[in-house]
Design a protein around this nucleic acid. Sequence first.
DNA 1: GCCACTTCCCTAATCATCTTAGGGAAACAA
DNA 2: TTGTTTCCCTAAGATGATTAGGGAAGTGGC
Lengths: 112, 112
Amino acid sequence: MSGAQILPGTLDLLILKAVSLGPEHGYGVLQRLGQLSKGELQIEQGALYPALYRLEKQGLVRSEWGSSENNRRAKFYALTAAGRGRLSEELASWERLVEAMEQVLRSKALAR
Amino acid sequence: MSGAQILPGTLDLLILKAVSLGPEHGYGVLQRLGQLSKGELQIEQGALYPALYRLEKQGLVRSEWGSSENNRRAKFYALTAAGRGRLSEELASWERLVEAMEQVLRSKALAR
DNA sequence: GCCACTTCCCTAATCATCTTAGGGAAACAA
DNA sequence: TTGTTTCCCTAAGATGATTAGGGAAGTGGC
């Protein structure tokens, strides 16, 4: 496989973001993330489904059984209002962390 | 405390980077990272010392007992040649991941 | 009809890594 | 001599991923 593993701690953010683009079933979330990241982000099913269950239990997504484009039984997930709130929190938190990391990683001299 | 927790998986990179700025002891690595990130990145000692041990066992850093600026017994760590190699690998890998994350997080519409 | 393949769902065991929560020693200040 | 800071370290627990299964239902080739 080409892609890298994701960073632990970013899975919920990625799923919420994927679902925010429109209702999607689990398997579709994987493909959607794969496409959007040009194959860089590969998520394992063993991580995905428990995460979806966890997000639903927290009321951040809601699910509904339906039928996929390929005529398969599929559980579609959609973002809730609470999910939108959490998504923007996680986005902000991600940006802060990346900014902090960049400050460290760019530094060339010591400030003591 | 103000700072956020770091992302799991980024600790080795942060430590290698900190040590690459000049030999430092464990406690000093914590302060150095705190300063460089303006307090955003807080690393726990319980995570730091095992990580330093692990890095040394892999030959990425080498250590030497000495005396700190505050006249305390301290073990100073310095980056090895292998450590420099690993650091640049981890840097590249980090950049790739951030780039992939940004592609996903910035997307506003579906490309199917 | 039958078989292989794909799409979709799910769970259990394991592993890696971090937090929490300790403990200890030596220097310095009050 | 007591408390605080600086430094080191380890063990237990939690978290969150990977690995490794299994199952069912549609589709296509033969």
